[in-house]
Amino acid sequence: MMDLLDVLFSAGLWAAVLRIATPLILGTLGELLCERAGILNLGIEGIMTFGAMIGWLAVYNGADLWTGMLVAALSGAAFGLLHSLLTVSFGLSQHVSGLGITLFASSLAYYLFRLLVPVVGIPPKILSFQPLNVPGLSDLPFIGPALFTQTAPTYVAMLLAVLMGWVIFRTPLGLAIRMTGETPHAAEAQGINPTAVRYGAVTVGSALMATGGAFLTLSAFDSFIPTMVQGRGWICIALVVFATWRPGRALIGALLFAFFDAFQIRLQTMLTGAIPYQLFLMMPYVLSIAALAATARRARVPQALMQPYRRGER
């Protein structure tokens, strides 16, 4: 019991929470933006994988870390455009198109990685983002090492959650996005172009997902390993429901989720041998399913989610 409290009050746990949460925050915000405009994006898992690979590859070939992030974002935007073409212009099944993009993006990532990076025993490494020293705050006892030893993208991700909350609920653009996700016909009657809004939201949202993937290879780890995304994209989709499509709650949900994940990793090392490690590894997925079951019924889904919009067709 004392051990558990020790874990809870160790700065390392809280530092890990923020680190684990970052890719989830970015992915969840990206998915949330797509869904607010009425498009489910199941491409997220593949887009995160591709972002992780291409961002790492750019840095490996001499680009600096932020350029790596940008390259990842651009690749995400490209997949977003493809998803928009299939689901918005053609009005095809968002489920199947998204899954197709996940299969395509992840297999393309593995293909290019194998092709462009020589096969060696130990995966090649890059110099990843280093912890940012926040003057004054980083030196505080406990709080400093717990909360202010993160890399820059983590802080950017949190600011983005606040920014997206503001855009969605406090700006005309946000109103246009929400209207398009609720009733595209009414949006069109107000002079909004639902097609353009959906294209924009899916493209920007997909770019965000890709940076979430790139965080894994440019900050959390320093090399690319196939399958490293490990279902984080699917967890983000669950987090969007858990957050009831609100960016602020998405931030809280991702942090809460990361807390359980960081805690179970520490529990796992404490209880080595007593309980099979696989049970701990299942926790994030089981937790996501439980969170969905608890919130899905109350959640107010954007009414036009998964409904293709064709002008003049009902």
């Binding site: 279902g231 997925y285 019924r297």
Partner: peptide, 19 residues
């Protein structure tokens, strides 16, 4: 509970393989 089965079936893949 009106939970969309796409995400739950996807997540259960990981649970099943770990099991």
């Amino acid at each position: 509970f009106s939970v969309d089965e796409v995400v739950t079936t996807l997540l259960l893949n990981f649970v099943a393989i770990l099991f």
